[in-house]
Amino acid sequence: MAEFTVNPTRFDPYKNFKFRVRWEGRYVAGVSKVGALKRTTEVVRHRHGGDPSSSRKSPGRTEYEAIVLERGVTHDTDFEQWANKVWNWGSGPGSETSLKDFRRDMIIEVYNEAGQLAIAYKVYRCWVSEFQALPDLDANANAVAIQTIRLENEGWERDQAVTEPVEPTLAVS
């Protein structure tokens, strides 16, 4: 079992606005929102023959919910290129898309207020099930155009190699 070191001076939880996403060894530009990491395990109810009125519960299959990434629309085509690995418009005989590399592992990193890496999660075998290239466009709005990808995945786990950082102290003169 991993041994955790605890920062006894930290009382506040980490904020949700300092994060980065990494895949294929590099950081993804401009990600402004990452959906929640959520898993659900089915409950299997069963009864023993001798139990007249009560049932027992056991864990069943575990499902990992899709993760949605959002970022502002730019000339960076990473989201689109990954989405095109699964579906490629106009592909015909001889130009089909290879599904050999349509899955990617991804790392989501959370940083503390001092900009130090505090927590990381590894997300396994992700692939794009939904791609939104442009949002609704509205000439009367005052907003950034956001594109999204929805990533199906086969599980995630906390990276135990990332330990709680020793936070710097503010020098008062």
Results as ranks from 00 to 15, higher is better:
T5N: 11
V110R: 08
F11D: 09
N88I: 09
L99G: 15
W87K: 11
A66R: 00
S54T: 12
Q116R: 05
Y111E: 07
N88K: 13
A145V: 12
S91F: 10
T9W: 07
G50E: 12
G35W: 00
I149E: 07
I107H: 01
A139K: 09
K85E: 15
R104Q: 12
E3V: 10
R125L: 00
I67H: 04
V34L: 00
L37S: 01
Y121S: 03
R22P: 00
D51Y: 03
R71W: 10
L134P: 12
C126P: 07
L99W: 07
G94F: 10
M1S: 11
T41M: 00
E113C: 07
V86A: 14
Y27S: 06
K18L: 14
V110F: 14
K18V: 11
L151S: 02
R26Y: 02
T97W: 09
P165G: 14
I149P: 04
D159M: 01
N142Q: 11
F4L: 02
P52R: 14
A29H: 04
R125P: 01
F11C: 08
A83E: 11
L170T: 13
E152G: 01
V44T: 01
R45N: 10
L151I: 04
N112W: 04
G94Y: 11
F4G: 01
A118F: 01
N153L: 00
A29P: 02
T77W: 09
P13K: 10
Y124W: 12
H46Y: 10
H75L: 06
F17I: 08
H75G: 06
E167T: 05
I108C: 04
A120C: 06
A143E: 15
E63Y: 11
L99C: 09
K100L: 07
V166D: 03
K122T: 00
E113M: 11
E42F: 03
A141R: 06
T41Q: 00
K122C: 02
R10C: 06
E164K: 03
K85W: 10
E130L: 05
V86M: 13
A2P: 09
R56C: 00
A83H: 08
D105L: 03
A133T: 08
Y124P: 00
N112I: 03
V68T: 15
F17L: 06
S173F: 13
V68H: 05
Q160N: 05
I108L: 13
E24A: 07
E157K: 03
